[in-house]
């Protein structure tokens, strides 16, 4: 008996979102099948990877990771150019972590200047991320959006506590938006509904389901992502159709496995390899669950995942 390929019928499609301008603009999403199942649907765009940079030197990153950027990380412009020109970054994600009240508490004006300077130096698309302090992000992202006007950036993260101001800012300067909720399918859906009710186009939203590191709850993110994607494809739920982004590096490079020296954990092997592998494996998990965009830190982990994406699509 000949084998009949068991195919699923999908009713929906993931929205396609374009980020950036000009020849280096990047499209994500657009697939109408579960991850990498091209035999039963189309996957028009490969998942993209953005290199994360910060507005202030990354003092809290593990040493093995800080060392990679030690010659450029004092200056976000140099750092951005290094990622674009030397590492071949497809996109850059600028995290304005220095604006956090518990960090340097940089002003919204300072943040806007950093955004402007970085944008002047690069031609790849830019993701602009706040410091994840909902209150401060509302001010910072407003200035950042203005400063980036016309460059079609991806801005975030809009959360339940601050989405009104962040959405208004992104809308006013024509940017795309990251909407993040607390690791829950229904909250993700609800936030998307609230945002579209403000008149923001659903085709300009990218969903952040809230990431987590390998060994530290990746299975929760994994299942929330599979459920969001199933709702979009099987039930054609338009409020769940935005592509998904995973903020990988931020969660990975603070867990013990990426920081503890081999001397403290002799059965874990060298910390340099362990950290790279931890970031790449976390990213692979998200790709298997439907990620369209990964924000990552270590070039070797990025290279590994790029090779895998090329082999998957």
């Amino acid at each position: 008996m000949a084998f009949v390929v068991p195919k699923e019928t999908y009713n929906g499609k993931v929205c396609e979102v374009e980020i950036g301008t000009g020849p280096r603009a990047v499209k994500i999403g657009g697939e109408n099948t579960l991850p990498f199942l091209a035999f039963e649907g189309s996957v028009p765009n490969k998942p993209a990877i953005a290199y994360e940079i910060q507005d202030v030197p990354p003092d809290d990153w593990p040493q093995t990771l800080q060392d990679v950027y030690k010659d450029v990380s004092a200056d976000p412009v140099k750092w951005a150019k290094y990622c674009q020109d030397e590492l071949g970054a497809q996109m850059i994600a600028l995290r304005l972590i220095g604006t956090h009240p518990d960090r340097q508490n940089r002003s919204a004006e300072d943040a806007a200047k950093t955004v402007k300077d970085v944008l002047a130096a690069i031609n790849v698309p830019l993701i602009i991320l706040g410091s994840n302090n909902a209150e401060k992000d509302a001010q910072v992202l407003k200035s950042a959006c203005d400063a980036a006007s016309g460059r079609n950036c991806l801005v975030g993260k809009a959360q339940e506590a601050n989405y009104k101001t962040v959405v208004a800012s992104a809308m006013a300067s024509g940017h795309k938006l990251i909407a993040m909720s607390d690791l829950d399918v229904n909250l993700a859906k609800q936030l998307n509904i609230l945002i579209t009710q403000m008149g923001f186009d659903k085709d300009k939203i990218v969903t952040d389901p809230m990431s987590s590191a390998l060994g530290y709850g990746i299975e929760y993110t994994y299942s929330v992502m599979e459920r969001i994607r199933s709702a979009a494809l099987f039930q054609n739920d338009q409020t769940m159709a935005p592509p998904m982004v995973n903020d990988v590096g931020m969660y990975v490079w603070k867990v013990k496995e990426t920081m503890a020296p081999e001397a403290d954990q002799p059965s874990w092997g060298p910390v340099a390899d362990r950290g790279i592998g931890w970031e790449a494996t976390t990213a692979m998990g998200f790709l298997m669950a439907g990620s369209d965009l990964l924000i990552m830190r270590h070039p070797k982990a990025v290279d590994t995942v790029v090779k895998m994406i090329d082999g998957l699509v």
């Binding site: 390998l214 874990w268 092997g269 362990r274 494996t281």
Partner: peptide
């Protein structure tokens, strides 16, 4: 290598919970 196995064992444990 230990670093490699550690990550894979964690992934397996997480997804099979």
């Amino acid at each position: 290598s230990q670093w490699k196995t550690l990550g894979l064992i964690a992934l397996r444990q997480n997804l099979y919970t």
